Simulated scan of single mutants.
Amino acid sequence: MKSILKQVVAVSMLSALAMPVMAQDAFKAADFEYGPRDVVEGEMPIWNTAKQKILAGDDLVGVTIEATDPRTYCAAANAGYDFTWVEMQHQATSWESVARMYASCPKATAAHGARLPYVDEHQVQQALDSGATVLVFPTIDTEEEARMAVQWSKFPPFGLHSQGGGQRWGMYADVPGGYRPTANANTVVILMIETLEGVENIDAIAKVEGIDALFIASGDLGNFSGYKQGEPQYEDLVDRITAAANANDIPLCGPLAWRADREGFSCFQAGSEASLIRRGFASEAEATARK
């Protein structure tokens, strides 16, 4: 009897092993419905003062930061500018230094910002983890570059930004609506058009969703074209960028000198803290000199 039972069990096990495994339905990320975890009920809070100005159509002025001294940074960030433009493209500054500056005055009147060296997931992650809420991307030449700049800057489901860690969670712990649910609406993305390729693709670039402003890089536009401001060839490039921005209701940025010289610009890059310190010293020396 035991022998028969063993044979029955063995046959049953072999039969079970021979049965086909029921495959699950193939998972498709595109068909997945994003959950309600980070949904904001009611009106989206806009706590970033730089974003508030953009939405209101007011002028937005960023002060360029090239030094890494937190005291200098905080003095500039509380001097009346709208955002800080920490220079990461043309300066040998580390993100550790940037994070230290942001942390020294987290509640500065200016929104913390940076010009990144290029479009890259790691660079964007470092900037946002450090506490930046204004991101300036240089040398945007194609629609794909523009799209990835936005994608890396925004959390899902709109973008691909990793939640990660960093000091931003402490800096913005008390913002209305909470940081994670409101971050996409409060992160400012500014794209710089500097090359002939950028001008060639400007119509497609300007149609990318999520761009807050387009910056006409006055110096490099001359560098890449070989013409000076005021010359017809240079002004034609400016006009093409301007037309694309206007057609898509995107604010235009330029150097602070253009605030008085050109119509249609509402976003500007001011000089560096070094130039401001130098002018301040010069002004005091002149004012106190013996007559």
Score class of each variant (00 low, 15 high):
A274N: 14
W85M: 04
E273Q: 10
D25C: 07
R240V: 02
V188P: 00
A270I: 01
M171K: 05
N246Q: 15
T133H: 06
A257P: 04
G226H: 02
D141Y: 01
A23P: 03
W169F: 10
L55G: 06
D82Y: 03
A99H: 02
W47H: 00
A10D: 14
T187P: 00
D59I: 06
E143C: 09
P70H: 11
E286N: 12
Q125Y: 12
P45C: 11
G35L: 05
G280Y: 12
A213K: 00
I205W: 00
M22A: 15
Y81A: 00
E235M: 05
V86I: 12
K207P: 01
P45D: 14
D38I: 06
T142R: 04
D249N: 09
L17E: 13
A16D: 11
H122A: 15
Q233P: 03
L60W: 03
L196M: 10
G280L: 08
A30V: 14
P232G: 04
A99P: 01
H161C: 13
P70K: 06
K6N: 13
A183N: 03
A10C: 15
P181V: 02
V238N: 01
T187K: 03
C253G: 13
Q229S: 11
D220A: 01
A92G: 04
T288P: 02
K6T: 14
D141A: 15
V8N: 07
P70C: 13
L191W: 04
M44C: 07
D25Q: 12
A92T: 13
D239H: 14
D212Y: 02
V40E: 08
H122D: 15
A285E: 11
